[in-house]
Design a protein around this nucleic acid. Structure first.
Lengths: 340, 340
DNA sequence: TTGTAGGCGTTATCAG
DNA sequence: CTGATAACGCCTACAA
């Protein structure tokens, strides 16, 4: 690989001049500048990001820490982040934590030695970024949290309006005629899971209804959890006429549980999901779901981060993206056949 | 961030000794070694990967270049690669090419300035890595191709046994009783798409049958392509009784086309997919598909690469992973009702 | 406006 | 076995 010294030699100028041309740092005379640019072209020169990073105390790498790229909601977020990062000259180092707090910490610590320009984090369960984030902040490295927030997170964040989304979805269920509403919520230490439950509760209150405690089941954000908890719900008397799943993966489990219990969706039990993944329109029946854009979550986070890198000193921003309701066939009016 | 000099001072030894301890490069006296280790511990020291990379002319970063993380087959591959990379002390820089050859080249060029230890590439359409890969090779950087191969690829590779998988799947369709078999193949400049077609053709030949040219349709590996081409196939007379989709995304489009044509799957038309994505069991009817493990593709590629980094000088390896058949409900015996 | 020199944090070489 | 010292490639004062 050609380096700056080579370029200087080819262009018959000094090292400093090459650097000046490359960084627009001094007014170089046009014909010299020309010669340098030519040499760069001819040699296919590209500055060593390593050396540059070492010198500037900062690379153009953004660390992206997520629980698991294999979870269908996250690729969109990553893609959004990568696209805007790339467009601005930044690259992404991807780290999966498996929701393991220790692994998250390890990544956080190690990433530091790459002098990343910034960090985009989807926190793991029980994440407490505060201490580490402070380290990064002190080093002038921005940290943006996405999708869910660690306890007491005071830094920049981008989330969907989970509460409002759940509120609207629940209102819709109520409006369709459901009164016996159950919800299978995600881990309540995750802010997004909590907010969704809050939205659900708020809608119930609005309707002056009450939810029996056993109608609220908590589980992890996956198919299996949804399946297990749905089986419990479906055995209750009276049986809930609608189940609001904390996310679409849970909803998949719910659908399976309904099928295997010899019941039908939506005739016997209506189901509402959250996330509106691509799979939502493939299930049978197609799943009604609260729609949020992972991609937009990613682009927004990257934009905020890059703004910080460009010197944005405003107080922490907490962007909350609107959700919308995707109505499909998994919700119908309750049949009022009573307990079967 | 503490640096080596700090550690040297704390441990009251010289810089060189610290380095020796950290790299086991010289037999340091136990009590000095102890002091150094203590200091490292106390200061929470981590070596700067940047400086180390600059000096060693190689970092512990692996560049991973893929078409699009948003395509449901790829997250598994990435995750597999990241897991074994991480376990061996390597990190992943993720780059999406959108199947754009130019973007791929740009990534390839730029990555070089990070002095990556190696590259794992899922080539884009019309990729011609040969020239760039040669550059990397010369710099002692391994390059492993995954899933599909660029034309004339001579380096390490890991792929599924696409031909054999397609062969088995087609044999299965034949065995069930289908004679009018159609296939919607992926872009034929992609080796995996071509191999799948080859497998299909081979099975047909084995059965001493013939496929009309219009029964083979080519499209991109996505839902829309599958939908459009399926509509064409379904209008043919005689109508094929089974459609083998080049991958599961195409199969999704086929299922939709069948539904919208007022036909039923599998009663009127059987469908077979390829990849066996998670969604395959969610469609209605659940999709029969050739199963391959993206995760294993990823881990295997990373293992080969890391082997190279550890000095494996053997000739290029071409690992081909077995596939298997996931039988679900989208394939049934043809009803022999003739042309409807 | 251009060129020179020092240093970023490591590692590797080479005296002592 | 240990410690000084010279790179790695780049940026940036500062001097010319």
């Amino acid at each position: 690989m050609a380096n700056m010294k080579d370029i200087a030699k080819i262009a018959r100028v000094s090292l400093g001049t090459v650097s000046h041309v490359l960084n627009n740092s001094a007014n170089v005379r046009p014909h010299l500048r020309e010669r340098v640019l030519d040499a760069v072209q001819k040699a296919g020169y590209q500055p060593s990001q390593l050396a540059r990073g070492l010198r500037r105390d900062k690379t153009n790498v953004i660390g992206m820490i997520i629980p698991d790229i294999t979870n269908p909601f996250f690729p969109g977020v990553v893609r959004g982040a990568e696209d805007t990062a790339f467009a601005n000259g930044y690259r992404l180092i991807l780290c999966n934590t498996d929701n393991d707090h220790a692994k998250e910490l390890a990544h956080l610590k190690e990433l530091q030695t790459y002098l990343p320009a910034g960090l985009i984090v989807i926190p793991s369960n029980f994440s407490d970024l505060t201490a580490q984030a402070e380290c990064y902040r002190k080093a002038g490295t921005g940290v943006v949290c996405v999708d869910r927030l660690p306890r007491n997170w005071a830094g920049d964040s981008v989330t969907a309006d989970n509460q409002e989304g759940a509120l609207e979805a629940t209102r819709y269920l109520l409006q369709v005629g459901h009164r016996e509403l159950a919800m299978i919520v995600g881990p309540q230490h995750l802010t997004n899971a909590k907010d969704r439950l809050n939205g659900f509760r708020k809608a119930i209150r609005e309707a002056k209804l009450h939810v029996k405690p056993e109608y609220i089941q908590e589980t992890s954000f996956d198919k299996n959890g949804g399946y297990t908890k749905a089986l419990i719900l479906l055995r209750l008397i009276p049986r809930p006429t609608a189940i609001f799943a904390g996310n679409d993966m849970i909803a998949l489990g719910v659908l399976r549980a309904i099928r295997e219990s010899g019941l039908r969706c939506p005739e016997d039990v209506s189901v509402m999901g959250f996330d509106d993944l691509d799979i939502a329109e493939l299930t049978s029946p197609p799943l009604s779901s609260v729609s949020q854009s992972g991609y937009q979550l990613g682009t927004t986070a990257a934009h905020i981060l890059i703004g910080r890198l460009h010197g944005d000193k405003n107080p922490a921003r907490h962007i909350v993206l609107k959700t919308s309701l995707s109505i499909r066939n998994s919700v119908a009016a309750p049949t009022d056949m009573g307990v079967s």
